[in-house]
Write a protein that binds this DNA or RNA. Sequence first.
DNA 1: CCAACATCATTGAACTGTCAACTATTCCCG
DNA 2: CGGGAATAGTTGACAGTTCAATGATGTTGG
Lengths: 164, 164
Amino acid sequence: MVASQTPRGFTDDERRTWAPLTAVLELLPHQIDAQLLRDEELTHFDYATLSMLALAEGRRMRMTDLATGVNATLSRLSHAISRLEKRGFVRRTRTPDDARATTVQLTADGHRKVIRATPEHVRTVRSFVFDALDAEQRRQLHDITAALLARLDPEQRMLASRMT
Amino acid sequence: MVASQTPRGFTDDERRTWAPLTAVLELLPHQIDAQLLRDEELTHFDYATLSMLALAEGRRMRMTDLATGVNATLSRLSHAISRLEKRGFVRRTRTPDDARATTVQLTADGHRKVIRATPEHVRTVRSFVFDALDAEQRRQLHDITAALLARLDPEQRMLASRMT
DNA sequence: CCAACATCATTGAACTGTCAACTATTCCCG
DNA sequence: CGGGAATAGTTGACAGTTCAATGATGTTGG
């Protein structure tokens, strides 16, 4: 058996981290989505969208800002908003100062929806993430995540808008 | 403004970690997929599948074992294998000892594909993950990831098969 | 001032993953 | 041994994401 015949490119150390990391990258979003879909028929992306609207002044935002905030393309957001609009959680309105822009308004129903969905969502995140770590690991995870995000999103558009 | 009107369920500390974590959970898989798609027209899932086959004895595995290894449902794997088979990277064969089972065989083309795809993939992972962290953080990430995976996949089916 | 270019957003087609239904085989146990 | 349950895998319909094309409005420099 010749060494170059196998596609191993990672060092053993790297693989020991990367292998479980890919698993987490796959399983964690899946579990988060699963809970929200089961209990509220919302994807995590839907929830994040409604949630960001709920925290905005006037509970409304322009498509572009919202897209930046939830880290999505305008296309993805537009499709998602169409679905949420059909369900009555959100309303598209015109933007006074720019006729190209669309402003998305959270409806009363939409607001109730987020409020209702939040507690169980928070419990789920805690059970899969925070409860599995001790206080020091939580701090470490925070720093590591920030370092990774700096590479992935050099302009920090994501972080900035979420830290409101 | 009444406090209960906002859907805040996380503590500030939790949110400071969870917000960037969700961003990483979204952006990192996206970047990994983007590189493989751009350079090799493979999703990361395709790559993981071919890669696991390449490391198996005889470069072949049963669908169920492969599905467990790449942490997928049989349905998802079956669709993916169909696509890879159409491209000639993989072949479905019968399993001698169980007529229900399908054994997937990596072809010579498939093997060459993984070999060719690996170096740039490894570079990409390093640039987005390992290069962003110091030695201690890499160790911490390993431990944190393992702890999270223990929650997400209590039977450790994933880890076990990947650590071969 | 107006032509080029940039920005904001929507749409439809193609693709991937999920879910439920289905076929075929094997296992288990009375 | 025979019939019901479990296992292995495939399939087709559906939902969400991406990508490229399009339209509409805004901005800017000659």
